[in-house]
Design a binder for these strands. Structure first.
Lengths: 198, 198
DNA sequence: GCTGGAAACGAAGGTACGTTAGTTTCCAGA
DNA sequence: TCTGGAAACTAACGTACCTTCGTTTCCAGC
C-alpha cells in the first residue's frame, strides 16, 4: 500500500492540527509524541512530514494562527461595541471570556507552551501577546483619564485581569454547571467591580 | 574517583531539589532531563538515584511538599488574623500573594505540571489543592451569609480570584518595578472590590 | 489515456533519555 | 584502628523519539 484511496491533503492537514491541539493541551508539547499524533490521525508517523516541517514548526504555526485569530476577533468585537468607553471595555472582556471557553485548547497552549518555542518563534509570539495586553492597557488608560476607572497601576491591573479571565480555560468544560452567557456576565462584573470608580 | 571528599548526602539532596525546581519551572517537567539536573548539581546522572526513587517520584515529592507547606502556612496566616471575617479574608489574599512571589517556582510547578503526574500522585495532589480552594470558598460563603459580600456564584468566583492571584507567579520577578507590599495591596483591593457589597 | 506530482507507505538512522549494575572511596561510630 | 554503609563514580542497556530515505499508489489536468 501507499497512498490511500480517497486521501486528501487538506483534510489530513486539518486533522493533524485538530489532533495536535488536543494532544498538546492534554499532555503538553514536550510530552506529546508524533507517533501518537500520527496514529490518532490515522497515518504513519513519516507521513506527517508531508504536512508539517517539524514538530517545532507545528507548535509555532498553531500558536501564530491562534494569536492572529485572537487579535482579529478582538478588534472586531471592540469596534462593533461603538464609541462609548465602557461598552468597548465590556466588549473586550466579554469577547475574551467567550473566546476562551470556545477555543480553550488553543488558548491554553498559547499561554503555557511559550517555553517550548525556540528563540525566534518565541520572540514573534510574545510580541503578538504583548499587542493583546496593550489593547487592554489602552482601554484602562482611557478609563482612568476619563475618571471612570480607579486603577493604581495599569500594567499590573491588566495582567491581573487577564490572568483571572484566562483562568477559565483551565477548568471550563462544555456541559458544565454554568452556561457561557452566565460565565461572561459573572466575570465581567467581577473584573469591572474591581476597577470601577466608587 | 568515587565518593568525593566532603560530599554530604543532605546537602546533595537539597541541591537536587533546588536545581530541579528551577529546571522544571523553566523548561517543564517533560522537557527537563536528568543529565542536565545532575550536571547542575555537580554529580553524575546515576548518582541522582542515591537521593531520588525516579524522575516521577521527584516531581511528586516536590509537589506534595509544596502543597503541605502552602496549606500549613495559609492556615497559620488566617488564624493569626483574628476572628473578624474581612480580616481573615484579607489575610488569606495577602498571604497568597506573598507566598506566590516568594516561592513562585514551586507554585508554578504545582499549578501547571499536574498532568505530568501519574494517576495515583495526581489524585493526591488534586485533593490537597481542592482543600486550598475549599478554604477560600468557606470564607466567601461566610461573607455572603453575613451580608458583607455580593457573590453570584461562589465556586466560580473562588476560581477566578485564585487565577488572578496566582497569575502573579507567571510574570513576577524580584527587583521588578513594584515591591511585594505594593503587589499585596494592589491585588487585595482588586479582589475585594470585585466581590464587596456595594 | 497519460503522466507528474501529491500523499501515503515501510524501514531505518541517529540520538538522547531514564535507569541499572557494579565498583570505589570516604567517614562516622564501634 | 577497623569496618559497614553512604554516596559518589564509570559503563552501558534498552527504549523511545524525531526525522530521513526510497518506494508505491492515486488522481487531477493535459
Amino acid at each position: 500500500m501507499a497512498r490511500i484511496t480517497g486521501s486528501n491533503g487538506a483534510r489530513t492537514a486539518a486533522a493533524i492540527r485538530r489532533v495536535a491541539l488536543r494532544l498538546i493541551y492534554r499532555q503538553g508539547f514536550a510530552a506529546m509524541n508524533l507517533r501518537d499524533l500520527a496514529a490518532q490521525v490515522g497515518i504513519q508517523p513519516s507521513s506527517l512530514y508531508n504536512h508539517i516541517v517539524s514538530k517545532q514548526a507545528l507548535l509555532s504555526d498553531l500558536m501564530q494562527e491562534h494569536m492572529t485569530a485572537l487579535l482579529t476577533a478582538t478588534d472586531a468585537a471592540v469596534a462593533a461595541a461603538g464609541p462609548v468607553l465602557m461598552d468597548r471595555l465590556r466588549a473586550f472582556i466579554g469577547h475574551h471570556v467567550l473566546y476562551h471557553t470556545e477555543r480553550r485548547h488553543e488558548v491554553y497552549i498559547a499561554n503555557f507552551e511559550l517555553r517550548a518555542l525556540d528563540p525566534a518563534n518565541h520572540a514573534r509570539i510574545v510580541a503578538m501577546r504583548a499587542g493583546y495586553e496593550a489593547r487592554l492597557m489602552a482601554l484602562l488608560r482611557e478609563g482612568v483619564d476619563a475618571g471612570e476607572l480607579d486603577i493604581a497601576d495599569i500594567p499590573v491591573t491588566a495582567f491581573a485581569m487577564l490572568a483571572m479571565l484566562t483562568g477559565i480555560c483551565t477548568w471550563y468544560r462544555p456541559n458544565g454547571r454554568l452556561g457561557k452567557a452566565e460565565l461572561v456576565a459573572l466575570h465581567t462584573e467581577l473584573a469591572l467591580n474591581g476597577i470601577r470608580r466608587r
